[in-house]
């Protein structure tokens, strides 16, 4: 599954992204399961709020962290996220 760079990405309504105080981690919750996220994955997913496409997510994150060259990492992670149903493109 690949990401269309022009299409808006949004987090799946069938999952929940949430900060867990005890674990000091963001997690994804879904029926019978939970995935613990590292910080960069969590930051990428928080950008998937239904207002941005891939290109915008990359440029917003690069700006936020004052860096460049994130496109490959972000794309690869979002492809995994799409395959797992954590995000949607519609």
């Amino acid at each position: 599954m690949s990401i269309n760079p022009d299409q808006i990405i949004k987090f799946s309504p069938m999952h929940r992204l949430q900060w867990e105080e005890v674990q000091q981690k963001d997690v994804i919750l879904y029926p019978e399961g939970m995935v613990e996220l590292n910080q960069s994955s969590a930051e990428i997913l928080k950008m998937c709020d239904g207002t941005r496409n891939l290109t915008q997510i990359v440029s917003d994150l690069e700006q936020q962290f004052a860096t460049t060259g994130l496109v490959n990492d972000i794309t690869a992670f979002l492809e995994v996220a799409l395959k797992n149903g954590w995000i949607q493109q519609k």
């Binding site: 949430q18 867990e20 005890v22 674990q23 997690v27 919750l29 019978e32 939970m34």
Partner: peptide
């Protein structure tokens, strides 16, 4: 409440 405070989430 008590279990949540300890970290239960599901």
């Amino acid at each position: 409440t008590q279990a949540r405070k300890m970290g239960a989430v599901q």
